[in-house]
Design a protein around this nucleic acid. Structure first.
Lengths: 198, 198, 198, 198
DNA sequence: GATGAATGAGTATTCATTCAT
DNA sequence: AATGAATGAATACTCATTCAT
């Protein structure tokens, strides 16, 4: 019960950090800017968090929990894997464009991070890779999907979505909306071939 | 005719820079490290290039040209869009895992860059998004592919591949090889549904 | 009558501070660490003491009183200056190695301190320089010692002892024990020359 | 021959650093102050030296070499150990009061330093402990000195001198001159007892 | 008595860049 | 063509201290 309680002040810092991490990446967020964004002194940030990694990990954890909860809730509402997939993909799209989830965006640059941080990031990745793989597996079991590699498939689906995120971040001219979700889903489910020859 | 001649020394710097950009990202490359890698003094770098952006742009341009050439050559060898797609996807995979092409990897972090740089990055993106879209368009024209949005489809395909790159960069335990190319291609072409119901 | 009462809580803080000052020096002790060592919040330290100087001065005063008392008691037990010196030197050695007295160890770095603090430190220095000088004076009066400068002699004797303390702190391989006391005393009393020619 | 050449600029920085280290100790020297003292920007300091430790080690090394050379030269001029000792002690006193040698003053606070730095400091300490011990040994061999522990004796002698240094640093009212050297030497050689009774 | 929150000034160090040679 | 020297601005982080509760 004495879990590390996250006070409102901490939440406010995490909120600001989430946006900055999503916009500028891990290295790109400077404590000075974060403090300014919060209207606090730099030192105050360090009163609440041990260091930059600590902030990132907390943002990651909080966001992962949120994403996971929404995904699971969405999947639960639908019985068959096809509907589940549809709902989950739309949920992802919503999370990405609305909240700029860092779990979904900042992970690209964990490369250079220290081991501890990278392992933590990996762990959190499972949070949204796992549910997708599970749905694919269910579909295979029920004979609805082809017997593909579940993990690779989940990764592919996420990759498609990320493609649009990255593109949007670069171009800043394309809103990620339902059409994207539909397109990705359609491609993932049926491919682009006219029929299953070959 | 007085095109910016790229001397051997410049090439050597670009070679070193390409590797460092790919490994550490744009912010992560420090001129100091680059100079050390080249066995040159920091100031000498600035004798050959205006600034860091200039280096990045040159690397990007050179790499884009190279990627473009290989993609086009590969596509040219095959007549039908299906084979073209297969060959092009395998080429991409090869470029990513062999040469760690920065066009394909570093673009994720152009977000925070200044406008000029971002526009330039966008332009280069077309280099490998364009050919893919063209192939998809050809397939649609020939009645082999469904009438999907060509640009979105190309983006989706690239996204899938990038998913694996990112994953590999994070996990560092999965080599990107032919199986990945085959999987991505199979999914892109036929989806995961057993048949085209619904 | 309203002398600055030193409550048990204050004593606990001073105990912790004494150890930290002795180990890390004046600058090296951080209030944060001190608070952690006491199991108190940083602000609580300031509830009991005005500032860092105040803490240092209190530790110094308390320790000086203790050292002084022990030295005086030891000296009192012996009648002749030679025995007094022997007993006092052994007492010093004991204090240094057992309690890591800060009066004897931290004083080296009062250099950079503000005037007030430095003057206070000086004053406390007299606490253990004075008794030694007195003993030497007594010895001279009784014709046992040569008519040397008493203060310089006391300082020399202490310097010898400090030499071993410093050396031990650096090397951390030599325990300060009776042999050191005997050696220092022997040198101080008879020098190293075979006989008093010159 | 390609020894790390110490350029004039480096020398200037080391000169400034030597004074600051001697006055404020290792922790007490701030790069900002050092840069200001040199009339350079902070970053320029780092152009010449890797970090603060590097600066300290260079100062230490240079100073140790200088002290060693002067001591050895002084000792060489005199044939008998007694004269040697006299000359060497006076040399030490001169070095301390004139140049504020850090080898002789800053070493007190290597306690908290990292291992590498502490070992280095220890090594340098031998530079001026060794020659003294050698002279004492020579005296013992020639039957001029009593058969004392040479290292402990050398340490004691240095300790006495340091006692005055510390005292002077604290009090800032006593110049270290010939009288101090004479006093210390006299005490070291003959002790304070009237005769060798006991 | 005690403390969580907050802070301004400080720490060592790194950055991309310039310039005289 | 090349570089050693120099720098202003930035980096993450720590300091002793204050104050409202």
């Amino acid at each position: 019960m004495t879990e590390p309680v996250i006070t409102p002040q901490k939440q406010a810092i995490l909120d600001a950090a989430q946006g900055l991490f999503a916009r500028h990446g891990y290295e790109g967020l400077s404590i000075r800017d974060l403090a300014a964004e919060c209207g606090l002194a730099k030192a105050t940030i360090y009163h609440h968090f041990r260091d930059k990694q600590d902030i990132f990990m907390n943002v990651l954890e909080r966001d992962a929990g949120c994403v996971h909860a929404q995904i699971m809730a969405a999947a639960k509402r639908e019985p068959d894997p096809l509907s589940k997939l549809r709902v989950v993909v739309h949920t992802y799209c919503g999370l990405i464009s609305e909240r700029r989830s860092i779990v979904l965006t900042t992970l690209r640059e964990v490369t250079g991070m220290e081991d501890k941080l990278r392992r933590f990031a990996m762990m959190n990745k499972q949070v949204f890779l796992g549910p997708l793989a599970a749905i694919v597996q269910q579909g295979i079991d029920e004979g609805v999907f082809r017997p593909v590699d579940t993990e690779m498939s989940a990764l592919s689906l996420l990759g498609m979505l990320h493609g649009f995120v990255t593109f949007q971040l670069i171009a800043q001219d394309r809103e990620i909306g339902s059409d994207v979700a539909d397109h990705v889903l359609s491609l993932f489910l049926h491919g682009i071939c006219v029929r299953d020859s070959q």
